[in-house]
Design a protein around this nucleic acid. Structure first.
Length: 569
RNA sequence: CGGGAUGUAGCGCAGCCUGGUUAGCGCACUUGACUGGGGGUCAAGGGGUCGGAGGUUCAAAUCCUCUCAUCCCGACCA
């Protein structure tokens, strides 16, 4: 392609409303433009990159017998009512009416549509398993879109769905999918981790995320480098407490005055104790009312773990307004002793003796509290959030590291949640009807491209991983109106094109400086700079974007080496 | 949905506090000349209902009220 013919509106300055580096660079490199909050136009250069990601995904999906389909983005309400998600999905579901007043939504995901197709067309165990996927736009009316196409409302996604007769077969496909995802993100040149994840509102029993490690990520990833265990922090297991021997004499429970001492730090300082000797009581609210969670003073409660433990629909920290409706609860002095609420305690509490809790009385705490004597615990479980340097639960010596991650892929075993609700059944060998077992698997296409930029850039611009680069090579003449240079550049261009290397020829009349700045900004892996001085010495300059290394090479001999130079990048 | 901020030319910004010529600057754009190895120089141009509506005033980009949009933090999120 000739640069002058391509629509690549590059900018010298970053847009004022861009915060993260990938957003800034994608706008500056002329890849995307914003249309409305969370809604973007993809320009030619951006689309070339997205197509690269898509192609890699297609190849890996086809490799494991996935078949590509294309489902509608506008979906009838009936299907969503049938799966019970019309009410459950909430405001994120963009609802629309057609001219007849019939209700539709813009698909945020496609379990309903795909299950509808499969239930109509698949009747026998002989037709299973089946794996279908598509790549198309989704719309989720996010509360707060941000970071360019990293978290847009409309976005490109690959979603795949599999249907099976039994758990084992589902697990097999799930594992193949995990391997395919690993291949995909490796080919995209990303540094990522496959981590345990919560299945959230999509439901299901088993799930992993693929997280690209980057500071701008929105998730916290906990992982252990000794054994490789990795998990989203909202699910990361903590190591059970080592059995401890109780002190010879146990303290008696005692009320102490703690006026104005509400936080753990306050109380610890006031009583001259460590936070580890205090038990925090956190009040949370779910559809059944209030519950209490106990964690050690230096720990944080993990609502996701607690929600999964209780098995409730939702769970959130109780607001002041809710607490104020309970006169027996005093903010800052709530404690588990004699508390008339279901009390869940973190495992670590079971190894504590002589600790401090709130006394359910203003300006008062208890000291010398003992679990078995003073507390009524509904259940002990792992309900705290792990921190960096916590011991790894899966190996002897390892400790947690915590880093930010961008969720680029997520795979789930759904079980029969949708197939039961929507009666997607098949006849088994005995002629008996069974619900199909499902899995679903997603990749954010645009987010993957953005994540690649987050991991591969410098102060000059993008540094594309080779497989995602919109072009492999850019030819930059010092002056394209010079006939000799033009001839050489055209020759190199034709030669590379014939070899199948995607090449961009910067035929613009701009001065060299501007063209070099743009080439760096666009992040094309290899630059060939053709100037009169070097050329008269029979040489051209070749610059590697990633390393900034620039060397003179004999022309025309070097052109034949370009493919091998590229392979080495 | 709570908290914070910003809307002035395609992009980045100043002017606003303390109202008063024709609303400025840099980049980009158009024309011409010179130039040609890291965003060049000179000259001449085009482009604005100062986000919108209402109000105060002799006079509003500037003060007041409402509203819309966008961004950030939090909550939320396959």
């Amino acid at each position: 392609m000739h640069f002058s013919k391509l629509f690549i509106p590059t900018l010298k300055e970053s847009p004022a409303d861009a915060e993260v580096i990938s957003h800034k660079l994608m706008v500056r490199a002329g890849m995307i433009r914003q249309v409305a909050s969370g809604i973007y136009s993809i320009l030619p250069l951006g689309l070339r990159v997205l197509r690269k990601v898509e192609q890699i995904i297609r190849e890996e999906m086809n490799q494991i017998d996935g078949q590509e389909v294309f489902l509608p983005s506008i979906q009838p309400a009936e299907l969503w009512i049938e799966s019970k998600r019309w009410d459950f999905y909430g405001k994120e579901l963009l609802r629309i009416k057609d001219r007849h007043g019939r209700e539709f939504c813009y698909g945020p995901t496609h379990e309903e549509v795909i299950t509808d197709i499969v239930r109509k067309e698949v009747k026998s165990y002989r037709q299973l398993p089946i794996l279908l996927y598509q790549i198309q736009t989704k719309f989720r009316d996010e509360v707060r879109p941000r970071f360019g196409i990293m978290r847009g409302r409309e976005f490109m996604m690959k979603d795949a769905y599999s249907f099976h007769t039994d758990e084992e077969d589902t697990q097999r496909t799930y594992n193949q999918m995990a391997q395919a995802y690993t291949n995909i993100f490796n080919r995209c040149g990303l540094n990522f981790k496959q981590v345990q994840a919560d299945s959230g509102t999509i439901g299901g029993s088993f799930s992993h995320e693929f997280a690209v490690l980057a500071d701008s990520g929105e998730d916290d990833i906990g992982f252990c480098e000794s054994c490789g265990y990795a998990s989203n922090l909202e699910l990361a297991e903590s190591k059970p407490p080592a059995p401890s021997t109780p002190p010879a004499t146990r303290q008696e429970i005692k009320e102490v005055e703690t006026p104005g001492q509400k936080s753990v730090e306050d109380v610890a300082g006031f009583l001259n104790l460590s936070a580890r000797q205090i038990v925090k009581t956190i009040l949370l609210e779910n559809e059944h009312g209030l519950v209490a969670g106990l964690v050690r003073g230096d720990h944080e409660i993990n609502p996701v773990k607690l929600k999964n433990l209780i098995g409730c629909e939702w769970l959130q920290p109780a607001g002041e307004e809710v607490i104020s409706r309970h006169p027996e609860l005093h903010c800052g002095y709530v404690g588990p002793v004699g508390l008339d609420l279901p009390v869940y305690a973190d495992c670590e509490i079971s190894a504590m003796y002589d600790f401090v809790t709130g006394a359910n009385k203003t300006s008062t705490h208890f000291t010398g509290v003992q679990v078995e004597r003073d507390l009524k615990i509904k259940q002990f479980s792992d309900i705290r959030t792990v921190k960096a340097d916590d011991p790894c639960p899966r190996c002897e010596r390892g400790v947690y590291q915590v880093k930010r991650g961008i969720e680029v892929g997520h795979i789930f075993i759904l079980g029969t949640k949708y197939s039961s609700a929507m009666k997607a059944v098949y006849l088994d060998q005995q002629g008996k009807e069974n619900a199909m077992i499902m899995g679903c698997y997603g990749i954010g296409v645009g987010r993957t491209a953005a994540a690649a930029i987050e991991q591969n850039h410098d102060d000059k611009g993008i540094v594309w991983p080779r497989n995602l680069a919109p072009f492999q090579v850019i030819i930059i003449p010092v002056n394209y109106s010079n006939e000799d240079l033009k001839t050489v550049c055209d020759t190199i261009y034709d030669q590379l094109q014939e070899t199948g290397i995607e090449t961009l020829l910067d035929d613009r009349s701009d001065r060299l400086g501007g063209k070099l700045k743009d080439a760096d900004l666009l992040g094309i892996p290899l630059q060939i700079i053709v100037g009169p001085k070097n050329l008269s010495a029979g040489q051209v300059e070749i610059k590697i974007r990633k390393t900034n290394e620039s060397d003179l090479h004999p022309y025309p001999e070097v052109i034949a080496d370009i493919p091998s130079i590229l392979k080495g990048l």
